[in-house]
Simulated assay, not measured.
Amino acid sequence: MSDLKTQPNDNSAEAFVASVENQQKREDAIELLNLMSDITQQPPVMWGDSLIGFGQYEYQYESGRRGRWFRVGFSPRKQNLTLYIMNGFSQYQHLLAQLGKHKTGKSCLYINKLADVDIDILKQMVALSFQTRFDSEI
């Protein structure tokens, strides 16, 4: 399967979120944990030491390399909250325009704090991303 170092494990997502030092980031992480749990109807799963994922899918590159990853997730990083929208942002331009203060990477949405964004728009993005069908789902 995959030789990625970041794998799902049995660590508690709730305990990880409770251990976040910065109070605002911890409160935002608790809200994201609840938001993504409600939207996905999936339990949070720790991936590695600092990623929380919901759902899983398998992928295969043209090279034949295979792996598995979560469908949506987040990490309360020191600089920002990083949300993982695995299908990227090309289809979300209309929502990103309404979201509020953020930055994006290929599949990462960077937010300083949840108060900077429209939570209803964020919920729409998480729901749409989670509903995306990948090649193979677990």
Rank of each mutant, 00 (worst) to 15 (best):
A115Y: 13
G73D: 02
E27P: 08
P8E: 04
N22I: 03
S37H: 11
K103T: 09
L128N: 08
K106C: 02
Y84I: 04
N80E: 11
Q7F: 07
G88T: 04
L51G: 12
L128Q: 08
L83M: 12
Q23H: 12
M46Y: 01
S90I: 10
G67I: 07
E27H: 06
L114A: 07
Q23K: 15
N87S: 14
R133M: 10
N112M: 06
V126P: 02
I52K: 00
V117N: 06
V126N: 05
M86A: 07
K5V: 08
L81V: 04
T104M: 09
A13G: 07
D120S: 10
M125E: 03
K78M: 11
F16S: 05
F130H: 04
D38H: 10
Q41W: 00
P8D: 08
I30W: 11
G73L: 01
S19Q: 06
S75E: 04
Q124H: 11
F16N: 01
L81N: 01
S75L: 03
T40D: 05
Q60Y: 06
I111H: 04
E62F: 15
L95F: 15
V45L: 03
G64A: 05
T104V: 10
M125C: 08
A29F: 14
F70Y: 03
M46F: 02
L96K: 06
F89M: 11
K123W: 12
C108G: 05
S63P: 05
I85G: 02
Q79F: 03
I30D: 03
G105I: 15
G100E: 05
K101Q: 12
Q24D: 08
V72T: 10
E27L: 14
L4M: 12
G105P: 08
N34H: 13
Q7R: 06
Q56C: 04
V17A: 06
Y57P: 04
Y59A: 00
Y59S: 00
K106Y: 04
L33D: 02
P8W: 00
G53A: 04
N80Q: 11
